[in-house]
Nucleic acid binder design. Structure first.
Lengths: 235, 235
DNA sequence: TAAAAATATTAAGAAAACATTAACCTTTGG
DNA sequence: CCAAAGGTTAATGTTTTCTTAATATTTTTA
């Protein structure tokens, strides 16, 4: 994260948008203001943002659609929804999509700033996607070419899928450490619910089959907690 | 973090407190309900909580004072304030103290649950600094690897269950001190009733069997009060 | 010392977590 | 527009852990 947090603001009412932008700037943030969802999505693809603030009611692409699209690109970036609609249903929908806040208009700018700071404070330690993309990871006799989705064992190459690669990367970069189910799910799937948990089981099974070739590696389950890639050096 | 998040709830209105506790329990959380700030502070010192929910208006020690005290003990644990007062000033005060949420009554339980989950999710991502952290506690000749649910005695490893680990952790972090049945039950089971009490007896028995290997450790019963892990250095 | 309360022990039953395989969508490249 | 691959959901079986129950023992109190 840069020194001054960079916010992406999508708000179609230009007067409110401008006011917010100015106040947030004074509060020490860098703001990129977009007038609709489509523009915001483009901006997000181009830049790097620490937090998003989306009006829910916008033309072209509303705040929820926008958030859903953003979540496909980035599982982690915090999202705050702004709306005139205080309905319970809408609020819950906002959280379900993976929003962090749901603020109903009218709201105080001071309060918004306080909430932004609270969120940034608790996300600032979150691991950023590894900038120096390490191409090859290894453990035991297994090498994984993350970018090309290939694993190499005893000179033999095998292609693996995107999800397999992500999961394996997570295990190898934290080998011998317990990864809780929740941590794995959020890092690989971006959500933590019943189905993604079943999914994880399926992929654990796939990885175990892949790692059968490597006697020094084993994915062990810690019942009720999660999994650990154990590297047995003695083997 | 354990599988079921553990919440500390301080609410002086017993009817609201009970209702919340029940709803949160059904949502899959373990709750420790305290009826005032002083009691909550004590509970916080004894147990380990993933998130705190404090009513602002409470006798003895209000929610803000309580939060300030907690912040001295733990700079990161998320705090949610509940209050009937929706004044701007109060809200900002809540955030300034380092609160993560400020919810005004009346509020929907569903919304509260959604917000709790959003916050917990944020704190679940892999953080580089904690990924490698392996919590090992020790007493006598016994070492307990809390994260991996393993105890080590004389170089011998034994796997233990989630509940065994939690209970043992509680004993070791308070060794030579009496832990009342009630404190143990609330911290490990999140409830204090007839059945959980029988359960505790069962687990005391399990731990005693584990600790048989260690002549310097003994779980002693103080009849009518609770239990104590006695560490006998001379042995 | 007998009755009551609290604690201890073991085992059976229930529930939760995990593993495995297959079916079913969804996306994507020809 | 089809086929292949990857991802998700479903179904089912197994293992582990947790809870409840049943019964025995110890400690306190009347």
């Amino acid at each position: 994260m840069e020194q001054t947090p960079h916010l992406l603001l999508a708000e179609d009412e230009s007067s409110l948008g401008f006011l917010l932008k100015e106040n947030l700037r004074l509060a020490g943030f860098k703001i990129n203001l977009c007038k609709d969802g489509a523009e915001a999505l483009e901006a997000f693809k181009t830049g790097k943002f620490d937090l998003c603030i989306f009006d829910v009611n916008m033309p072209k692409k509303d705040g929820f659609e926008l958030a859903a699209d953003i979540r496909l690109l980035d599982k982690f970036v915090p999202i705050i929804f702004l709306t005139a609609n205080s309905s319970e249903e809408d609020k819950l929908k906002g959280f379900e999509i993976g929003g962090d806040e749901y603020i109903t208009k009218p709201f105080s700018t001071q309060e918004l700033i306080a909430r932004i700071k609270a969120i940034i404070k608790r996300t600032q330690f979150v691991k950023p996607e590894i900038a120096t993309e390490q191409k090859i990871l290894s453990a035991g006799i297994t090498e994984v070419d993350i970018t090309n989705h290939v694993i190499i064992q005893n000179g033999q190459e095998k292609r693996i899928s995107n999800t397999e690669a992500e999961l394996l990367k997570l295990f190898i970069t934290h080998k011998n450490n317990l990864l809780t189910r929740s941590v794995i799910l959020l890092n690989v799937w971006g959500r933590d619910d019943f189905y993604s948990a079943r999914n994880l089981d399926v992929y654990i099974n796939k990885l175990r089959k892949l790692l059968k070739e490597d006697p020094s590696l084993e994915i062990v389950n810690i019942h009720g907690s999660g999994f650990k890639l154990a590297e047995n050096v003695g083997a």
